[in-house]
Design a protein around this nucleic acid. Structure first.
Lengths: 194, 194
DNA sequence: AAATCGGCTTGATTTAGATCAAGCAGAAGT
DNA sequence: ACTTCTGCTTGATCTAAATCAAGCCGATTT
């Protein structure tokens, strides 16, 4: 599990982390396994962990007052899952984070992360890179949700996250795009006929 | 203009920046004035600057293939405007950034920002804080655009950005929410009657 | 003061996508 | 092998919001 993290770190930072520096990561993160349908975080609770997905897939979602689920994001291997707002400010989270498959995670508390930032310049750099990227991605997604038609949204998903298409149920993909499962099904059919 | 930046820095970082450290900011940022309707960035161009708004208001928007404008974000005093993706990767931007009022800006090129990060720990910290906050805010906005009705969107705007309501034309507020101006007008009327 | 213009509202109509409802096929459990 | 789920599709209907269209009002121009 730690080896996956190490490979990932080397890849993303285009560096080769020393044993010494990686030792800090080992101290910060502990291994955690979740079976399918288990939760890393429940709505109303305070998010305690930042989790690195070594294996498996997860979703982060809200439930609205009509009881409808809305998927904020998916996570798969080499992605990070957490509610940063809750983790940082210790406020109750609006989100649920659920394992969609059996998962191998590496989790760290906020205290450990603060410590790690002091110990590892690479981790600070990684944090910057990730924050930038996720900010850019979410801007793009706002664009999509505001201005795209159902068909354009589906095309966006196929082009930007093809790996999601066959891994997650259509009903969840629909929710991720802000569509109903019926509409997604119809749009897919139309697109295939073209 | 620099005094506004200094006040802002002290406020956001809850520190009191030294003259010495602030000197690096002065070297990195240069003053730039934009009149209403002038542009900081045009679609297709590479974004050269990160801009701090000392005075005025701006909008960042895209134009879709039907020629319709979609507002990605507004910026007012003490906000930052830029297309980070374009600035960092030197790729052409999808965005236009326009002054909605006469603006006083402090702008820095990416090179200056990199230098500043080496010189000022406070700036690094500021960057982290901002990235976190804007990521959290854009997650919230995705929630809103995916799952809210027109009425709920308008309430969201009134609660989260009341300062926008009387400062920007309704047509732009509508675009920001992913609504038409007509719908926004009707929803406002309904809400006032309650 | 008349004319032009931009921003907002209001009404009539249309439509994309939601909702409601039924049926089907593959996976999982007994 | 036969239920029981669960997820997906398809059809019929409905509705929220878009579109189309006209008119209003205050600001700016001539």
């Amino acid at each position: 599990m730690y080896e996956q993290l190490r490979t990932y770190l080397n890849k993303v930072t285009s560096a080769n982390i020393s044993d010494e520096e990686f030792q800090f990561f080992k101290e910060a993160f502990s291994a955690k396994k979740l079976k399918k349908k288990q939760y890393l975080l429940h709505e109303g609770a305070i998010c305690r962990y930042m989790a690195f997905i070594a294996k498996g897939a997860m979703r982060q979602y809200t439930i609205d007052d009509k009881g409808i689920e809305h998927i904020a994001r998916f996570g798969i291997e080499e992605w990070w899952m957490s509610d940063r707002e809750s983790l940082l400010s210790l406020t109750p989270s609006r989100y649920n984070i659920e394992a969609l498959e059996d998962c191998h995670l590496l989790v760290a508390t906020n205290e450990k992360l603060i410590l790690l930032r002091e110990q590892s310049p690479l981790f600070v750099k990684l944090g910057q890179t990730l924050d930038e990227k996720s900010y850019i991605a979410s801007q793009k997604r706002i664009d999509v949700t505001i201005s795209y038609t159902a068909e354009e949204k589906v095309i966006y998903l196929m082009e930007n996250h093809p790996q999601f298409l066959h891994r997650f149920p259509q009903s969840m993909l629909a929710s991720y795009l802000g569509l109903t499962p019926e509409t997604l099904s119809r749009v897919r059919k139309q697109l295939l006929q073209k």
